[in-house]
Simulated assay, not measured.
Amino acid sequence: MPIMRSLLIYSLLMTTVVVASNFLVQYPLHITLAGINLADLLTFGAFTYPIAFLITDLTNRQFGPKLARRVVFVGFIAGVLLSILLASPRIAAASGSAFLVGQLLDISVFNKLRRESWWKAPLMGSLIGSALDTVIFFSMSFAPLFGFLGVNDDFAIGTAPLFGVLAMEAPRWISWAVADFSVKMLIGIVMLVPYGALMTVVRPMPAAERAV
């Protein structure tokens, strides 16, 4: 498959995931499980966003960090522009900042570990990138400190039991952030399945492993 065609496909997939996640993060998961209201813990965006790390890692594996960064920048620009139409400007700004920093960190970690066991690079890259991504996104989206970026939904800035089960109350966005990262860790592990399955299809190009 020609390089430009592959990069176009990766870029389109990345843009789709980012825009969908920015839209879905505005919708809490209104499901009660074992007496816990998951709306206090999760949004639907938590289940789609980790796919972005899979796309980045596959691009990095096949073409190296330089072209992987290009895909990230395409996803960043297109994602922010389209998200302004589908989400609030504050969500778009927070998502763009978190996405860019988290994905670039993922690329850097992946590249350092790419010659070790096949699962280490994608797993550690996505987990470390997700941690920073989560902190940046939820802080910018919902913390009062960033109120200058726009007005929040009252539901987002209310309080809720931390983890949904503890007596300690915390701003709802903090509960979302903790639960969101937990889901990202879980899905990061699950994403090893498609990554491993695609390893024989998405083979590194000769220059990929020499790239820095």
Rank of each mutant, 00 (worst) to 15 (best):
P2S: 15
P2T: 14
P2E: 13
S6T: 10
L8P: 02
I9C: 09
L12Q: 11
M14P: 02
T15E: 09
T16V: 15
N22E: 09
F23T: 04
Y27I: 14
Y27H: 13
Y27R: 03
P28F: 10
L29T: 01
G35D: 03
I36W: 02
N37P: 08
L38E: 06
A39W: 11
A39M: 06
L41S: 02
L41V: 06
L42I: 02
T43E: 04
T43G: 14
F44K: 01
G45Y: 08
T48C: 10
I51M: 05
I51V: 14
I51F: 14
F53W: 07
T56C: 15
T56S: 15
T59Q: 07
T59N: 10
R61G: 09
Q62C: 14
P65C: 04
A68S: 09
V71P: 05
V71C: 04
V71Y: 01
F76A: 04
A78N: 04
V80C: 05
S83T: 14
S83V: 07
I84N: 06
L85M: 10
L85S: 12
S88K: 10
P89D: 07
A92S: 15
A92R: 05
A92F: 11
A94N: 13
A98H: 01
F99M: 09
L100F: 13
L100D: 01
L104R: 06
L113Q: 05
L113R: 01
R114N: 10
R114V: 08
E116M: 13
W118E: 02
W119S: 03
W119N: 02
W119F: 15
A121G: 02
L123I: 03
S126G: 11
S126K: 07
L127F: 15
I128R: 03
G129L: 13
G129K: 04
A131F: 07
L132K: 01
D133Q: 10
V135M: 09
I136L: 12
S139E: 04
M140S: 09
F142P: 00
A143D: 04
A143F: 11
A143Y: 12
P144L: 14
L145M: 15
F146M: 11
F148K: 02
F148R: 03
L149K: 00
G150C: 05
G150I: 12
G150W: 13
D153H: 07
F155G: 10
A156F: 11
G158F: 11
G158D: 13
A160P: 07
F163A: 10
A167P: 02
A167Q: 08
M168L: 14
E169W: 08
W173A: 00
I174H: 00
W176L: 03
V178G: 14
D180F: 15
F181H: 08
S182K: 05
M185H: 09
L186T: 06
I187Y: 00
I189H: 08
M191R: 01
L192V: 02
P194A: 12
G196I: 01
M199S: 14
M199N: 13
T200V: 12
T200H: 14
V201I: 13
V202K: 08
P204L: 06
A208P: 01
R210T: 05
V212A: 08
